[in-house]
Amino acid sequence: MAIVVERKRLSWLERTYLPQIVSGLYITLKNFFKPKVTLEYPDQYTSLPAGYRGAPTLVKDSQGREKCVSCQLCEFVCPSKAIKVVPGEISADSEYAYIEKAPSSFTIDMARCIFCGMCEEACPERAIVLQTEFSLNGLSRSELLRDKRSLYAAGGILPDKIMKWKKVKDNSELEGSH
C-alpha cells in the first residue's frame, strides 16, 4: 500500500519559487568559488586504499619459488573466462620437486578480466593476488594477454611464512622433533 506523505503547505512567497531560486543560485555560486575536488589523473596519482582490486598478478614466496600449483580453481571460478592455465609437472630433480605441480603456462586476458577478485578468493595457495596496477593498456588484444612471465614480473614476492616445499623427508626426522 502506498504511503501518502503529507506535503507542507507552501506560503505565497514560496509558491512564486523566487526565494528558492535565489537561494539556489547563491549555493551554486558559492560552489563556483570553492576549491576543486578533481584529481588531475595522469599528472597526479592518488593513494589507493587497502584492498584495492587492480590487475591480478602471480606472486612468488620469499624464497622466489612460484606459489601457484596450477589447481585451476581460478580458471574455474573466473566469471569472464579470462584465465587459462595449462598444468605441468615439476621435474623430479628440482629443488621444489615435493610440490610436484606448477603451471606450464598461465595466461590472463586483461581485456576480459573484470577485476572481481574471485581468483584471489579461490586460490588455495595465495598465489594469485590482485594488486594496485589499474592502468592497463595496449595497442592490440595480444598485448593485453599476460603470460606467466609477465604475471610474475608484475606480482613480485609475497613475504609470507609458508614454505610448502620444505618438508621432512622421513619419519625418523619427526621422532627427534617431538
Binding site: 560552489n31 576543486k36 588531475e40
Partner: peptide, 10 residues
C-alpha cells in the same frame, strides 16, 4: 567551464 566549476571540477 561554469558547470564544472559549480560542480567542483576543472
Amino acid at each position: 567551464k561554469v558547470c564544472a566549476f559549480i560542480q567542483g571540477r576543472y
